[in-house]
Design a protein around this nucleic acid. Structure first.
Lengths: 161, 161
DNA sequence: CGATCATTATTCGTGTACGAAATATTTGTG
DNA sequence: CACAAATATTTCGTACACGAATAATGATCG
């Protein structure tokens, strides 16, 4: 056998990425009971820039449009976002945070910070910066993930990066 | 007060963890077409230690038993794993890699390495070790994760609508 | 003008994720 | 032995993830 010793699967980066996300999500759900992490990302994205259409929001939030549709249905039915057809371009639906949605973000902010504190308790502040930096570099390697292709046509604000 | 500048959501570790996993998974799926990452983890776990029951396998592979059942159904129906009731304890079902399953692991090994190379192309070898180490520390923070040993949990009525 | 192509949102199918309940089996008492 | 507690798997409900197909609207060009 041409046997070079395999690295155990539990030391593989992909496995550890999945496990770290699971752990963080588990902590998150004990601290923040009102929103899932993707839902929080959507609300924060709309807070940072209102009146996005769903495609642009999906790109910003890193959520596939096919995933985003039912996610927004849930947020809309709970009254946290408002969705309306763009009269200028009736293919689009523009989204913005409702007042209860904005209040919710304020309310859960301490819990969000607490969850991060718990999840990253094993890392020093410098290590947290290093982790952030390295995760950004891995995330950029994905050519066509959930929010792909910065096409060559910035229409109404498709600038990225 | 209340006016401290928020960090953009796209720099939050939880967001970046999700994005990095998406990117890696996307690369994986272009290189390795035969198995998903969790399926690969299961087969590798059984390769490292055969005749595990599903609970133990779930703990090893970081997959909830409720998720593992249909995942194993798929691997079994494709002939990559064999599942049989433990005659010593008929509650358990013991699992092992079939011959085609072992051959599959050998066959896809180059693609798996290639996917890792692509996904981590932005990181030096030392940085990859650092990332691995930090992800392990984050993963350990998650008490209950996917397959906990058990513990006395008060009550976690986590309900999203 | 009309055929065609591009864009946007939705729907469908498959797979992962996990809490909670249901089921089956074993074990631990009395 | 009877029966409650513990253990192992499955099922159910909800949510995320994404490729592919559809439908609706808009843009382009001959």
């Amino acid at each position: 056998m041409a046997g070079h010793p395999e690295r155990p699967i539990v030391e593989a980066p992909l496995y550890l990425l999945r496990r770290a996300l699971q752990a963080y999500t588990s902590i998150w759900q004990t601290e923040v009971r009102d929103l899932t992490p993707p839902q929080y990302t959507v609300l924060r994205s709309l807070q940072e820039e209102p009146d996005l259409d769903q495609s642009t929001l999906g790109r910003r939030a890193g959520i596939d449009v096919a995933t985003l549709t039912p996610l927004l249905d849930r947020l809309e039915s709970r009254g946290f976002v408002e969705r309306e057809v763009d009269p200028k371009n009736r293919r689009r639906k523009l989204l913005r945070l409702s007042k209860p949605g904005a209040r919710l973000l304020d309310d859960i902010h301490p819990a969000v910070r607490q969850a991060e504190e718990h999840a990253l308790a094993g890392l020093s502040p410098e290590e947290r910066d290093t982790l952030t930096d390295m995760l950004q570099r891995v995330a950029r390697q994905g050519a066509g993930g959930a929010a792909p292709s910065s096409s060559t046509k910035p229409e109404t604000g498709t600038r990225f990066d």
